[in-house]
């Protein structure tokens, strides 16, 4: 099967994830959208691995997953901290660096 449908699917998922980041104020949803974008990228990796007939793409996808796990741990900790101090999980409320 041609890789093109997989890549189009990856593109769609990626942009939908991007839209989630842009549109949702809830930090958790935005964060999940980021995970969706990572998954879309992984799909592209795996597709290309198969297309080229080697496993490097799969390895890369594997590392992306591990890094995503680490990122989620730290990111969720940060969200919990922000929620504790500001009583809000909205990313718009965390705009203190602006005057």
């Amino acid at each position: 099967m041609s890789p093109t449908p997989y890549l189009v699917l990856a593109t769609l998922l990626f942009t939908i994830g991007g839209a989630g980041v842009l549109l949702r104020r809830n930090a958790l949803v935005a964060f999940m959208s980021v995970e969706l974008m990572l998954n879309a990228a992984n799909l592209a990796f795996v597709t290309f691995a198969r297309m080229h007939g080697n496993l490097d793409g799969q390895i890369m996808a594997f590392f992306v997953m591990v890094i995503a796990a680490a990122e989620v741990v730290v990111g969720l900790a940060i969200i919990v901290m922000i929620f504790r101090t500001r009583r809000s999980a909205s990313v718009d409320d965390a705009s203190l660096l602006k005057l």
Binding site: V21, L23, V91, D92, S95, L97
Partner: peptide
Amino acid sequence: WQTGFVRSYAL
């Protein structure tokens, strides 16, 4: 330009 909103920066 610097709204402080992380979503603007993401955009």
